[in-house]
Amino acid sequence: MTENLKVSIRNLNVFYGKKQALFDVSLNIMEKEVTSLIGPSGCGKSTLLKCINRMNDLVEICNINGQILLDSVDINEVSQDPVLLRMKVGMVFQKPNPFPKSIYDNVAFGPRLHGMTKSKEDLDNIVIQSLSKSGLYEEVKDRLYEPGTGLSGGQQQRLCIARALAVNPQILLMDEPCSALDPIATAKIEDLIAELKQQYTIVIVTHSMQQAARVSDRTAYMHMGELIETGMTKTIFSNPQHEKTQDYITGRIG
């Protein structure tokens, strides 16, 4: 396993108005690994995740201090463009949110937006490749021009993953991507994650210990806005250093 540092979060504090949501969080995310964020509801997992692609910029009352280095460059620096950042850092949401457009147009959304293709063939190729990567192509190849909202929940989520992959990101953020899905659809997404990590760095928020254990290489446990413990998933689950982590993993908090 290559031990390349992809994202380095240093002493991050996040405030929503007067309320502090993250306290001095420091976390390293390694390239082409899956890092899972776990912890009880309201502990700040989504907040941390959204800092990595600056989606918190959209929340008026949100203030951030600390550093987030992506390939050693601070993403919050004035010279950094959030649009380019979000091309590099894709996001998949808790609830599948395909646009009310055709399957094709959903996947083509990003490439068109950023003018990534010169010809229709290029665009077709990107769409097909992205759908194949998300394991959806075989299921939808006959109905690419039907609305994406007509797919099943699991298919919609994979469509959203394909949409994110179409702009060729380096990092994929996933906020509880399986919480609206049944076990079979969940298993498909988990397989997909295992495949995608060959090419992408993935950060996933999950409420399921089993899922974290199954898909992730590293796990970070958060509690009330603080990062309590981080390490290799195997170590965290078999031999947690911190009492709170142990309580959570064994089901005593949560």
Partner: peptide, 15 residues
């Protein structure tokens, strides 16, 4: 229009 659509688009790097 659900907020999730807006967020989805912004997260794709749309202005």
């Amino acid at each position: 229009v659900p907020r999730s659509l807006k967020e989805g688009s912004l997260a794709m790097g749309a202005t």
